[in-house]
């Protein structure tokens, strides 16, 4: 199997947890890969996939634009976004700040901090297509609409918690929660998509 380059956006947020979880997932699958922390434009070149971590979406956007990553990120074929990362991938965002932009790659509408502040953050055992596990929702966004080309991976009481979009050779995956804090199964799923291309 060919060696792949997996990038993790490393400006801000829980990127270390994503790097660790990706490492574990690669080991479990016996895949060989380079994990690259991305903070500059040159690190985006030759990536087979990119993970956008949880953090503050406004901060991540500001730093990506300022460092000239924004347009090149749109060309990456495989992207996985958790929480803030999911916001960055969405076509439409509710409750965004005045200057907030997103990559607009995925046909979803997402509501920032939809559950309220930290006092409403919660942990819950959820069922997903990939398996059941404890999911952590921290000041989590909520996916409020999905386009017709979106495939739902986790849903509870009509609320979409994770979904994917395949568009020719482009593939995007998002989760409102943080698998990187509790399980490797989302990272394994994302890696399998990359390695089977």
């Amino acid at each position: 199997m060919k060696l792949k380059n997996i990038g993790v956006l490393g400006f801000q947020g829980d990127f270390v947890e994503h790097i660790e979880t990706t490492k574990k997932a690669l080991n479990k699958l016996s895949f060989e890969g380079n994990i690259i922390m991305v903070k500059t434009k040159d690190k985006l070149q030759n990536l087979d996939g990119l993970i956008i971590p949880g953090g503050e979406s406004t901060t991540l956007q500001t730093l990506c634009i300022k460092n000239g990553l924004w347009e090149d990120m749109k060309r990456i074929k495989y992207i996985y976004g958790t929480c803030a990362g999911a916001i960055l991938l969405a076509k439409k965002v509710l409750h965004k700040t005045k200057n907030q932009q997103t990559l607009e790659l995925m046909d979803i509408e997402i509501d920032r901090n939809a559950y309220g502040g930290q006092i409403s953050s919660f942990e819950k055992k959820i069922k997903t297509k990939l398996g059941n596990f404890d999911a952590v929702f921290i000041r989590s966004p909520r996916i409020t609409k999905t386009g017709k080309n979106i495939v739902i991976i986790a849903k509870e009481r009509n609320e979409v918690l994770a979904c994917e979009q395949r568009d020719k050779d482009k593939y995007y995956l998002v989760s409102c929660f943080h698998p990187e804090l509790t399980t490797t199964i989302f990272h394994e799923y994302f890696l399998k998509k990359i390695y089977s291309q």
């Binding site: 949880g54 953090g55 503050e56 919660f122 942990e123 921290i138």
Partner: peptide, 20 residues
Amino acid sequence: MTKTGTFKLKSGLAQMLKGG
């Protein structure tokens, strides 16, 4: 069951602030 105020949620928010 939904749990709030767990240590994982508390320390988890701090994780999201890293690098900031």
